[in-house]
């Protein structure tokens, strides 16, 4: 089935088996292997990518559902030599060990920053009607859709904090 997506700024048309997930389309058809498959069932976040700027689990989405969508993967955020600020911060804070969850964490963090800016609430938001403050608790909760079995959580928080800046 013909599907056209703009991936990391580049339009590409693929002829896909409808069963192909967005994740497998990226990894197997577009050679964008940065997005990882940890569970294939929406339970780990390793496959997180941004679709039209919004983070989703690409394993639980069919590629054909994304005809016309703009997809950003880890490869689209930054490259060696020209890292995205989040990538830079992850490197500096040692916010990963094995590195397998890392592209998902970074894409997720990028999506999260937008959600924070858009004042979306989380379960840590005490006052749903007030402006959201990016406390540590908010960031932890908002990053909870990305499991890191190496358990780099304190370092991931520090990295995101580097980018978000301190809050009062």
């Amino acid at each position: 089935m013909k599907t056209t997506m703009t991936v990391n700024g580049q339009a590409s048309t693929l002829d896909l088996d409808p069963r192909t997930t967005l994740l497998d389309a990226l990894r197997e058809h577009l050679n964008l292997k940065g997005s990882k498959k940890g569970c294939d069932h929406g339970q780990c976040g390793a496959c997180t990518v941004l679709v039209n700027g919004v983070r989703i689990n690409s394993c639980l989405s069919l590629a054909v559902m994304h005809d016309g969508d703009a997809v950003t993967t880890i490869e689209g955020l930054g490259v060696v030599g020209a890292l995205h600020p989040l990538q830079e911060a992850f490197l500096k804070q040692d916010a990963f060990q094995c590195g397998y969850c890392t592209p998902g964490q970074i894409c997720s963090a990028a999506g999260m920053l937008k959600e924070l800016a858009d004042n979306w609430p989380s379960q840590e938001t005490a006052d749903l009607t007030a402006a959201i403050v990016a406390t540590d608790a908010e960031i932890r909760e908002r990053m909870s859709g990305n499991i890191c079995r190496c358990s780099a959580y304190p370092q991931i928080l520090a990295a995101i904090r580097d980018v978000v800046g301190a809050v009062a």
Binding site: L32, K33, G34, S35, I74, G78, V79, L91
Partner: peptide, 20 residues
């Protein structure tokens, strides 16, 4: 506390794991 040697590859998703 030097940064990880292979870190740039891992944060850019360009470190190829076995399936990749």
């Amino acid at each position: 506390a030097v940064d990880r040697y292979e870190g740039p590859l891992k944060v850019t998703g360009t470190a190829p794991y076995a399936y990749e």
